[in-house]
């Protein structure tokens, strides 16, 4: 199977993630979609690594995973705090900063 198919799959995953971020209101789902986009990017890195035959992309994918793990911790903490203060996990309710 041609490795290019992985790139198509990554594009599909990224699109699903992006659309999810844009249309869903629940912060947790939005967050999951963000993760989906990150992993789509990871998949691209790995796929291109395979296509070009060197390891740079795979090493980069590990970095992204580490950063994504850290980001999940911070992001979930924010969502928990948001839920505690506003009794809702909807991103549209968190609009206090607008004039």
């Amino acid at each position: 199977m041609s490795p290019v198919n992985y790139v198509y799959l990554a594009a599909l995953l990224f699109t699903i993630g992006a659309v999810g971020v844009l249309i869903r209101r629940n912060a947790i789902v939005v967050f999951m979609c963000v993760e989906l986009m990150l992993n789509a990017a990871n998949l691209t890195l790995v796929a291109f690594s395979r296509i070009h035959g060197n390891l740079d992309g795979q090493i980069m994918a590990f970095f992204v995973m580490v950063v994504a793990a850290a980001e999940v911790v911070v992001g979930l903490a924010i969502i928990v705090m948001l839920y505690r203060s506003r009794h809702s996990a909807s991103v549209d309710d968190a609009s206090l900063m607008k004039l």
Partner: peptide, 17 residues
């Protein structure tokens, strides 16, 4: 210009995309 800042995260995300 201020109207652009409507406080909806998703609309900011659209701008980013």
């Amino acid at each position: 210009t201020r109207r652009l800042q409507n406080g909806f995260v998703r609309s900011y995300a659209v701008s980013m995309f």
